[in-house]
Amino acid sequence: MYSQTMLTEKVPIRSIAKALMVIEYLASCQTEVPLSNISSKLKMSKSTVHGILSTLKQYGYIEQSSFTGNYKLGIRFFELGRIVASTWDVRAVSGPYIQKLLERTGETVHLVVLDKGEVLYIDKRESNQSLRIVSEIGSRLPAHCTGVGKVLLAYLPKLEMQRIITTKGLPQYTKNTITDPLKLEEELKAIRERGYAYDIEEIMENLSCIAAPIFDYSGKAIAAISISGPSTRFTAVRLEEIKPILIETAAEISTSLGYRR
């Protein structure tokens, strides 16, 4: 990210490009760094690097140790990060993407979060096909028997996931509902490994879906999206057709929220 090639590209203001290289390098080090190391690594003169550091330090973006004289990123980056994070509303960011997903697949799309151990539906784009899904924004469903719920459980810390299962229980809704905690944990492990989840008539007869997680800038799965439809239409072939489109959309939303794999 801080390679010399950045300066060989057509950059309107080279001094800004150099300052960004210094910032990226310090961020990658995650510790205090002497000026000589920065100069050597980035192949810049010490005077140039010192000038950049002095300017950034003046505005609070760089801190210099009073003991070693080494440099590290300043508190201003933390303050700005909090401001940026607060403006990233997952529903607002996801809106255009899930609308595009509806248009590409022609199937109902849901956006959900995990709240108090349950799935909370925060957005929906509905299919105009004859067989549609009856669901409402603001409604809640159990996590253990929905595709979106299983995805979000799968990416929780193990103890938190187990606490939800213990607290909420695993009530049976259909013959396909997983009611054994050990079997559910095995299913969640498989979901983590492949990156998506299925719900084949686990909460309602003749209802199937496929779901994928949405990650924020910290790498936390903060939401999930799903494509749902009647099982008569959601055959194995149909699920395979829409799977890559769903995964691609979830990845695009995650990137827009600052997630970097």
Rank of each mutant, 00 (worst) to 15 (best):
R238Q: 09
Y198H: 09
K150N: 09
P230N: 11
L80N: 15
E193V: 06
C145A: 10
I83D: 14
C29Q: 13
L182Q: 10
S28A: 11
V90K: 03
K57E: 13
L7P: 01
T167D: 14
V113Q: 06
L114Q: 10
E9G: 14
I52H: 02
E136S: 08
L35I: 12
A85D: 14
A212H: 05
I191E: 01
M21V: 14
I225K: 02
S28Q: 10
P142F: 03
I83P: 04
Y198F: 08
R260Q: 11
L56E: 07
G60Y: 01
I38W: 02
T146F: 03
I191P: 00
R76C: 08
G69W: 01
I247S: 04
Y25D: 11
L20E: 05
A85T: 15
R261I: 14
V151S: 01
A250D: 04
K150E: 14
Q99H: 07
T255L: 06
G60Q: 05
V33M: 07
P12T: 13
E187W: 09
S3L: 12
K100C: 10
E126H: 12
A197H: 01
L120M: 07
S36A: 11
F67P: 01
E24P: 00
E107K: 08
T146M: 03
S231R: 05
Y59F: 06
L120K: 15
R163M: 10
L141S: 13
I210M: 08
L73V: 12
V49A: 10
L26D: 03
I191W: 00
K220H: 13
E24Q: 07
E9P: 00
L35S: 08
T177K: 02
I247Q: 07
Q30R: 14
D180L: 10
A211S: 06
Y25I: 05
K46V: 07
I16E: 09
A27S: 11
T108K: 14
L207E: 14
K243E: 15
I214E: 12
I137G: 06
T232A: 10
T249E: 13
R192K: 09
F215C: 04
I83R: 14
S130M: 12
R82C: 15
H110Y: 13
Q30Y: 04
A190K: 10
R76L: 14
T48Q: 05
K158E: 15
K10S: 11
I16L: 15
I210H: 04
S135C: 06
C145P: 01
G106Q: 09
V93M: 11
T87W: 12
S66I: 02
K124L: 15
E160Y: 13
S66R: 02
L101E: 08
L257S: 06
C209R: 01
V90P: 00
S3C: 14
S94P: 06
G195E: 04
T5A: 13
E252R: 09
A250K: 01
F78S: 15
I245K: 01
Y196N: 03
V112R: 00
P34N: 08
V33K: 00
S135W: 07
L184M: 14
Y155T: 09
L182W: 12
H110K: 11
I222S: 03
L42G: 04
L239Q: 07
V113T: 10
Y155H: 10
S226T: 04
S226D: 13
K124N: 15
L26Y: 06
G229H: 02
R14M: 12
A250H: 03
S86H: 12
G117I: 00
T146V: 10
